[in-house]
């Protein structure tokens, strides 16, 4: 049985009928760490809210943990764990009070499921008498995760858990998710950060409510159609301009301190270098690279 199964799920907002989620179908296996990757406004939060029974779909259906999201919403509400994108704990309650409040609301106690949150809670335990509003961003996320986990959910929905969190805390957070996965909890996570995608078992790339691709991160990067080069020159702006007008270039875009370029046909590195130098660019560097998830995403968007 699948942990989560979406069947042509659709969500339309407002009078102008803007489609936020457009016929999305996907399945998440039991015990999987599934990533929903896409930019802001792609429809990630709408999908999460429908799966957690907070929104009614306008079309299609979905099953979470064997229950229908519309008919059996009460069951789903007592079994899943949900961590909304916005920090959603009580800032005027202490760390401990927040945790015990959510434990009681879910009909359990901190002691009963302490083993689940132990790894995470231990990091914030020394602040347990501090009010949640006074915690740092990373701490808040850890506390929110503890609160979402305290009732031993079968499926955990994490909506952009690492947005606004520093890189170190982000890394720690993903390590925690890995450990939770080992405990058999199915995790569905959304993120706008492409670099986090490789940490998932499988990912769905999503944009404007439509699924672009569902694959393991390795397969997605491996399936990148063209050979990709990282190019650098002293004057990056001129480089990008030159590349745009280069007849052999299929695509070129800035990527960190490099420009990522692919070509319409196999072309020798020297030919490209010579062309760039002839166009008056200095300090030209060029080397073949493996495509990242972001490259794949950009490639999929062009289609």
């Amino acid at each position: 049985m699948h942990a989560v199964k979406l069947n042509n799920l659709t969500k339309v907002y407002g009078k102008e009928k803007s489609v936020a989620v457009d016929n999305v179908s996907l399945t998440v296996e039991k015990g999987e760490l599934f990533g929903l990757i896409g930019p802001d406004g792609a429809g990630k939060t709408s999908i999460f809210r429908m799966l957690t029974t907070l929104l009614l779909p306008d079309g299609g259906s979905a099953i979470v943990d064997g229950y229908d999201i519309v008919k059996d919403y009460a069951y789903i509400r007592s079994t899943v764990g949900y961590m909304p994108g916005k920090f959603s704990l009580y800032p005027d309650l202490t760390v401990e009070e927040n945790l015990s409040f959510f434990a009681t609301v879910f009909g359990t106690t901190i002691e009963e499921n302490y083993h689940l949150i132990k790894d995470i809670y231990i990091q914030i335990e020394k602040f347990k008498h501090r009010r949640a509003g006074k915690l740092s961003g990373g701490m808040k996320q850890k506390l929110a995760l503890c609160c979402a986990l305290i009732h031993k959910p079968t499926v955990l929905f994490l909506d952009e858990p690492t947005t606004g969190v520093d890189p170190v805390s982000r890394k720690e957070f993903w390590e925690m998710l890995k450990r939770l996965k080992q405990q058999g909890i199915t995790i569905m996570v959304s993120t706008p950060y492409m670099d986090e995608a490789t940490l998932c078992d499988r990912i769905a790339l999503i944009d404007q409510g439509k699924i672009l691709s569902i694959e393991t991160p390795e397969n997605i990067t491996r399936s990148y159609p063209d050979k990709l080069y990282a190019v650098k020159a002293e004057n990056m702006y001129a480089l990008l301009k030159t590349m745009e007008s280069y007849e052999h270039a299929a695509s070129s875009y800035a990527f960190g301190e490099y420009a990522h370029v692919s070509f319409r046909e196999a072309i020798s590195e020297d030919t490209v270098k010579r062309y760039l130098q002839d166009s008056g660019l200095s300090g030209v560097e060029l080397r073949p690279i493996d495509a990242t998830i972001e490259d794949c995403f950009i490639n999929l968007l062009k289609k």
Partner: peptide, 13 residues
């Protein structure tokens, strides 16, 4: 407004 209602709704309460 704070978003805590979201969590409270997704609970058996």
């Amino acid at each position: 407004e704070m978003g805590t209602m979201e969590i409270l709704l997704v609970s058996p309460f």
